[in-house]
């Protein structure tokens, strides 16, 4: 099976309006629309993690709205300090496996799982390497290019993507480092899409040198431990090792520190917070990390991300001002 990421997209909402109120986030609105209008036809199943309130409800909307694509819910543990969370998560994974087996008629085996984990870990390392290497070639790896490399990972078989990315990195390394005159920023949030938005950064002399986007580097920050038990247990331990994500309970509001560290490592001038419209988990984090960044001397601009809305004029002006300020 090839897992694909469903991150919504630019859609005109018609059918989804009968399922979601206007204040559900644009990603879920678009996902629902694509599910209902047949765009997602061909998927064998959809796995929905219930990590926010909207996603909780999405499990039920999907179940009744898109009955042709079976819905597999997964409820991740949030009290990761509790040792019992590991066994609990393993049982959730096992439920997912049971449904997947029913849907596909195929069974998982331990050797294949361990091999896959290795591929994913290698892929993580490749993506981190790409992110670093890209910073020496910001003339080629524009914000849009960077995002394309990141997002394409959701649509390739992992081993295939794992083979492509090192090629990109190697090719970049053969070129002389480019001394970029532009300002350097880190992106934070869920996603920074569509390309029009990223183009505005470039138009205003900003380049992306790192990110804390759920769709991009948050995916690759945490490897699955090599030891610790069978494959499923190690996957559960990986969940417990994740950090700095608005969707995973953690005390101390650590994102400000994490972002400041990202800025330091990548010599960034500031942070753009891409606040997904109606995304409450992000909205709770944003005031804290913005304040922490400011206190650390890093300027921060918050822009609202809403790919259902085509108007970017206001954002353009704000990004321009931010760029000038940097």
């Amino acid at each position: 099976m090839i897992p694909m990421g469903l991150w919504g997209g630019q859609a005109e909402l018609k059918l989804a309006k009968s399922y979601l109120p206007a204040f559900a986030c644009p990603i879920m609105q678009a996902d629902m629309e694509f599910g209902l209008n047949g765009t997602y036809e061909g998927l064998s199943a959809v796995i929905i993690p219930t990590i926010c309130d909207t996603l909780r409800c999405m499990t039920q909307n999907w179940r009744f709205g898109v009955p042709t694509i079976p819905m597999i819910p997964i409820v991740y543990p949030q009290n990761r300090k509790s040792p019992a969370s590991v066994d609990y998560l393993i049982s959730e994974y096992e439920t997912v496996l049971t449904v997947l087996s029913t849907v596909t008629g195929k069974m998982m085996n331990e050797a294949a799982l361990c091999e896959t984990i290795e591929i994913y870990n290698t892929h993580n390392a490749m993506m981190r390497e790409f992110s670093r290497a890209a910073n020496d070639h910001l003339d080629i790896i524009t914000p849009v290019e960077r995002h394309t490399v990141m997002k394409s990972a959701f649509f390739y078989e992992k081993s295939e993507h794992t083979a492509i990315v090192p090629n990109i990195v190697e090719n970049l390394k053969t070129l002389p480092a480019y001394c970029c005159p532009d300002k350097r920023v880190i992106l934070s949030g869920i996603t920074c899409e569509p390309d029009e938005l990223l183009e505005i950064l470039r138009e205003n002399g900003l380049c992306v040198v790192g990110d804390d986007l759920a769709q991009e580097m948050r995916q690759y920050r945490t490897d699955t431990p090599e030891k610790g038990g069978g494959g499923l247990r190690r996957l559960a331990l990986q969940w417990n090792n994740r950090y700095g994500c608005s969707l995973i309970h953690e005390l101390g509001k650590p994102r400000g520190k994490l972002l400041a560290e990202l800025c330091r490592e990548n010599e960034a001038d500031g942070v753009i917070c891409c606040l997904m419209k109606f995304c409450d988990p992000e909205e709770y984090d944003q005031p804290y990390y913005e304040a922490d960044l400011r206190a650390g001397g890093y300027p921060c601009l918050t822009v609202e991300v809403d790919h259902l809305n085509a108007g970017y004029e206001q954002i353009r002006t704000r990004i321009q001002t931010f760029s000038e300020m940097l």
Partner: peptide
């Protein structure tokens, strides 16, 4: 009550009310 504050109570309510 479509409660603007509360996504958890609203985001599946349309389907529930229909059924």
């Amino acid at each position: 009550h479509v409660n603007r504050s509360c996504k958890v109570m609203d985001c599946q309510m349309m389907e529930v009310q229909r059924q």
